[in-house]
Amino acid sequence: MSEPVTALNNASETNGIAAIRELGPLGMITLRGDLSAAYLRTLTTKLTGVKFPDVRECHSEGENGLAWMSPDELLVMCSYAQANDHVARMSEALSGKHALVANVSDARAVFEVKGPHARDVIAKLAPVDLTPEGFTPGMFRRSRMAQVPAAFWMRDAETFQIICFRSVAQYMFDLLKIAAQPGSEVGHF
């Protein structure tokens, strides 16, 4: 089998007010089920080694992570190579329970926006309170960025990670580039 190729071949842009790059390929698994169930929480925390997220939270460590998508949907993150194996293990562990597990690693594109002005860039595109008090590392927000749905969280005080659909990866990259154009610091945060 061929080497997996991300939507933009890991394109990057570093001339603006924040560094932008496409990450991946990364492993992402949609898990729909009862997020309050102990069997589900144990299973996913064991697989990823991170804490189970509370409402609108994301815990991540390297490529592993768990993000709260809705009361019955969890995004399980891992390395791209692990995804199929994780799907198989989760499906097996959840057999007999009402749950749905699907590998969505290839359905998404992932971007990183990094630098002291990273908040500016996101706040130009998403109708979300991005003040340092309003949005902190560990929070996970599903919203829109300009005209497409997207989810993002902060890995640290200067780093955002954004997930969107693969088909709009070019649109998202172009958006981020424009929002980070040189000289466009807002100085609000």
Binding site: V55, R56, S70, P71, P127, V128, R141, R142, S143, R144
Partner: peptide, 9 residues
């Protein structure tokens, strides 16, 4: 999910 957001969401 508890989010308070503008209508466009």
């Amino acid at each position: 999910c508890g989010v308070t957001a503008e209508e466009t969401e």
